[in-house]
């Protein structure tokens, strides 16, 4: 009787330990659906969707609290991908959230910049370098084109410039050939 009890307690302890260990070891990081949605969003972090960044918007979509057509930088293609992923109906970009624009980067006019650091604080992706009272510069490769730095600048020295195509980024066009009816 005692041995039976001891054996059972022993088994219970071992299994409990295994389960406890497994729950730590194989813990699912975050919500996998949110991850998948976030992977589709363009990470511009501009907030045009009405949420403070792409991830909060992804969470809201996953919770069914937001529509899939609120992200202008992602554009139509992004909406299509979200619709595919979530099995929802495709709908055109919601106008109240903005329009799809060509990809741009911000440029600081260094002759006007007063080194106030306001834009640095506004940039969500740390793409602006500079220190108080010194010229600020935007690292073009890291700028997502979110435009959040435009409004805070007291001397309006930041402008958006569309990214031009170079040989390295040039793409072969989709072949346009007339198709003869079979």
């Amino acid at each position: 009787m005692i041995t039976a009890l001891l054996v059972m307690t022993g088994i219970a302890l071992v299994l409990g330990a295994v389960l406890g260990f497994a729950s730590i070891k194989f813990k699912v990081e975050g919500d996998p659906l949110v991850e998948k949605i976030d992977a589709i969003l363009p990470q511009t972090q501009c907030g045009q969707c009405g949420f403070p960044g792409c991830r909060p918007y992804a969470t809201a979509i996953a919770d069914g609290e937001a529509e899939i057509n609120q992200c202008p930088p992602g554009g139509e293609e992004g909406i299509r991908k979200l619709a595919d992923l979530l099995g929802r109906e495709f709908k055109p970009l919601s106008e109240e959230h903005g329009v799809e624009k060509p990809k741009s980067v911000a440029v600081i006019d260094e002759a006007t910049c007063i080194g106030c650091t306001l834009c640095i604080q506004a940039c969500p992706v740390d793409a602006i370098v500079g220190a108080a009272k010194q010229l600020h510069t935007i690292v073009a490769a890291e700028c997502t084109g979110c435009e959040l730095c435009l409004a805070p600048c007291p001397v309006d020295c930041i402008t958006m410039e569309a990214i031009t195509e170079t040989v390295d980024t040039w793409k072969w066009r989709y072949p346009v050939v007339e198709i003869k009816a079979a």
């Binding site: 363009p42 990470q43 792409c54 969500p124 992706v125 793409a127 890291e142 997502t144």
Partner: peptide
């Protein structure tokens, strides 16, 4: 580039 942006955003 979007992965980089995500990392920098999260770090900020």
């Amino acid at each position: 580039s979007s992965d980089g942006a995500r990392d920098r955003f999260e770090f900020k």
